[in-house]
Design a protein around this nucleic acid. Structure first.
Lengths: 339, 339
DNA sequence: ATGAAAGCGCTAACAC
DNA sequence: GTGTTAGCGCTTTCAT
């Protein structure tokens, strides 16, 4: 276990001052380029590595970005993270990642950890359960930018990155109506979250426009889990006045619902047309292939990261952009095409 | 943007020394419990947060664990990460995560970043391309534990966490043989990686035992991507002496190969029995459902993290366990059952 | 272009 | 049980 080399060791060997070494290592313009070369090569030779803690302590900046997501093991989230990692890594930021597991309590605990880790900025997608965002106020008060993505909340000091969920929900529902559906069931998640609430709004809007009366009993709020999908299948089986269309706010849940329906002898899309949301790889594998909304995960991650970096670099500290809306797209596949 | 509170501020207000405050905040046993209470509540009141950089600088420990994975957006990897995050978060460690995107160069760059971030330990699953592990030697020389999981490499100072890939490959191949397959094609990844090499060994072993002659032309090395799956389908179509069994070292690739075969009019499993590896959610959705090896991702992550923590806490610094082998399981589904 | 020196906030050895 | 004090390694202002 060798001793750590410091700039003092280098300075000593080269008969220079630590200040010069520090400057050279940061490529400071005032340092003679020959001196610089000597120092850099000596540092390498001696196996020097910066002590970022000393540096952070001194500079009061950490070069670390925190991310809080509902869960890590979802296709969408991991795509987003892949995008963020790519951008932040290229800009020499570290990423620290934690998951709330959809629990407000854990989200709060994680935000404390992030706060104590002195992240330079925070990227958040909210848990199902989260009621208020009091726990992010400490960041905002300290001028640490907080950026919400996907599951966002309106806050005049925070940027949000989303797709137009209402429009997407509207398009999906309209598509089902065009395919002849008149009783469309909507299975969704916690309506506290914009993504579900807005999709529902789109659903309502489409029905209204097409003059189809809204039947509140066709709106089913779940946790969008695999089990919820299966359960939805059972419920539909038992319904007297069965739906002829099904809009589920998440492909994962939709796929399991389809399995359940198929097992019960339903023919998709003939008996019931189905649409999901997210364009999970599962959607292209389930039979019939699932109609869905394509949703740019990796891109959302990249844009979120870039936007945060930009904000950190802007000296003003004032946040100009407030909401970034990414393009989403209806992907029609066999699960919903009836003619 | 308020000023940061330090232990000096607290000490000053309470007319105590910073040392006492520091001790109280760390719950040091020597401190009077009343003093402790006063200090803790004052700290809260004043909005104090530890400066972990000062603390790290002083203690020469970072409470940060680095993870390098091939890619973030794979079902298996995200399950592993979910497990790691869970354990490490509970133990007050931070996780910094980066992806190599299967490139040796990026893996090396990431390892440098981790090194400079002074991680207390490193968790690694190797990239396809990685030739040697020279870039991890710096950690080992410094006594920083490096633990490999899934895609591992033998190193007498590092713990590895794996499943028995050879046994799994053997079981899968034996199963196909039992189903009557005599010409089993094996599609795999870069054989530099233990996971693929061992699965191939298991394949060979099964053929040998059952007295089936090995046809080297049936071993096809790919990048196991979606495209590779489709391509494999095309290749099989064009083969004169077609295989009657197919063992693909990864469900994701297998699923796309199945799609390709189905489209070409093959009946699975009648014309060709198919098996994958990983038990990706896709395996339970593709039709017919895909036979595979179940592979405990989340558990692997948890165990890797726990093992690393244990190692960090053991004062000895000597690594006793060297390889941890997790249980894996053959899951037989319709894609391979012929009678 | 380079150096001297102060200090970031915390911890821990030592003293009482 | 509490205080004193000396750094941890770096950056940066000011001086030369």
């Amino acid at each position: 276990m060798d001793k750590e080399i410091t700039i003092y060791d280098i300075a000593h060997q080269l008969k220079l001052s630590p200040a010069t070494v520090s400057r050279a290592l940061q490529n400071h313009p005032a340092i003679n380029s020959n001196t610089k070369k000597t120092i850099v090569s000596k540092a390498k030779e001696m196996g020097y590595r910066t002590n970022i803690f000393a540096s952070n302590l001194r500079r009061k900046k950490t070069n670390t970005i925190g991310v809080i997501v509902p869960r890590l093991n979802s296709y969408f989230v991991s795509s987003v993270l892949a995008g963020m990692e790519k951008v932040l890594n290229d800009s020499a930021y570290n990423l620290i990642i934690s998951q709330s597991l959809e629990s407000a309590k854990k989200e709060i605990a994680n935000s404390h950890t992030m706060f104590n880790s002195r992240v330079d900025g925070l990227l958040v997608s909210l848990a199902y359960e989260t009621e208020d965002i009091e726990h992010f106020e400490v960041f905002i008060r300290k001028g640490i930018p907080v950026l919400f993505f996907d599951r966002v909340v309106a806050h005049n000091q925070c940027t949000s990155i989303v797709i137009d969920n209402q429009k997407a929900g509207y398009e999906l529902t309209s598509h089902l109506i065009e395919q002849g559906c008149r009783r469309i069931m909507h299975v969704t998640g916690n309506l506290k979250r914009n993504v579900y609430d807005d999709r529902l709004k789109g659903y309502r809007q489409a029905l209204l426009e097409k003059g189809i009366e809204l039947d509140e009993s066709l709106i089913y709020v779940t946790d969008l889990s695999q089990e919820a999908g299966v359960e939805t299948g059972h419920i539909i089986q038992k319904m007297e006045n069965k739906p002829d269309g099904l809009f589920i706010a998440n492909d994962f849940c939709a796929v399991h619902c389809m399995e359940s329906l198929k097992q019960a002898g339903f023919s998709i899309p003939r008996d019931i047309a189905v649409a999901g949301f997210n364009d999970d790889p599962l959607a292209r594998v389930i039979e019939p292939n699932l109609t869905t909304i394509h949703y740019p995960g990796q891109e959302m991650g990249e844009i979120a990261a870039k936007s945060l970096i930009q904000h950190l670099n802007s000296s003003s500290g004032v946040n100009h952009t407030n909401t970034i809306i990414l393009h989403s797209e209806l992907i029609v596949r066999a699960s919903s095409v009836r003619h």
